[in-house]
């Protein structure tokens, strides 16, 4: 058995610590050690985007990052997006636009879209299409996902006025 490293990180506002092997991916750490199974693994080689989480404000593929690299990081996963029982504006827009079917890719799209909208609160349709092009969905054909992200952007802008 390889050496264990003690890891401390903040996930969805809560401090966590655990011991991990250096080779354990951040995705496996979240799912297996912290029991945050909302982050899904679709390919484990960084292409499908299902495992995307937000690490220190950036969208990151948690299958391509080792858990030990997240020492001290502030992480948001899909479990941290809603405000208690209230869905976030983005989650609500996904619901309203039928932007999910089987739901397996959805956590990765939500986290990716959160970072898009944080960077660019008024994206064009083409900008959204490009920004989510690294996430694969097999059910929806993407159209309602793009609609939902644009609608969430609009609702957020309206909310800020």
């Amino acid at each position: 058995m390889t050496e264990q490293h003690h890891l401390t990180l903040t996930v969805n506002g809560r401090a966590h610590s655990c011991d991990v092997e250096p080779r354990m991916t951040l995705a496996d750490c979240l799912r297996e050690r912290l029991d945050l199974t909302g982050t899904h693994l679709g390919c484990e080689h960084g292409v499908c985007g299902a495992c995307t989480i937000i690490v220190d404000g950036a969208a990151v593929r948690s299958c391509l990052m080792f858990a030990v690299q997240a020492e001290g990081a502030e992480i948001t996963t899909v479990e941290g997006l809603a405000d208690g029982e209230t869905l976030s504006v983005l989650q609500q827009a996904f619901h309203d636009n039928f932007a999910l079917q089987c739901g397996f890719c959805t956590p990765g799209f939500l986290t990716t879209a959160e970072t898009i909208l944080a960077e660019n609160p008024s994206p064009t349709r083409a900008e959204v299409q490009s920004a989510i092009s690294g996430n694969i969905c097999r059910c929806t054909g993407y159209v309602p996902i793009i609609d939902a992200i644009l609608e969430a952007a609009e609702r957020r802008r309206a909310g800020k006025k």
Binding site: T37, G38, H40, E79, L81, Q91, G103, T106
Partner: peptide, 23 residues
């Protein structure tokens, strides 16, 4: 009617239970 999906909430909040989530 285009009734909104009853399944969505658990999928949107990461609380769905797919096979690899079962321990």
């Amino acid at each position: 009617a285009s009734v909104k999906r009853l399944e969505d909430r658990r999928f949107l909040t990461g609380t769905g239970r797919y096979i690899d989530d079962v321990k």
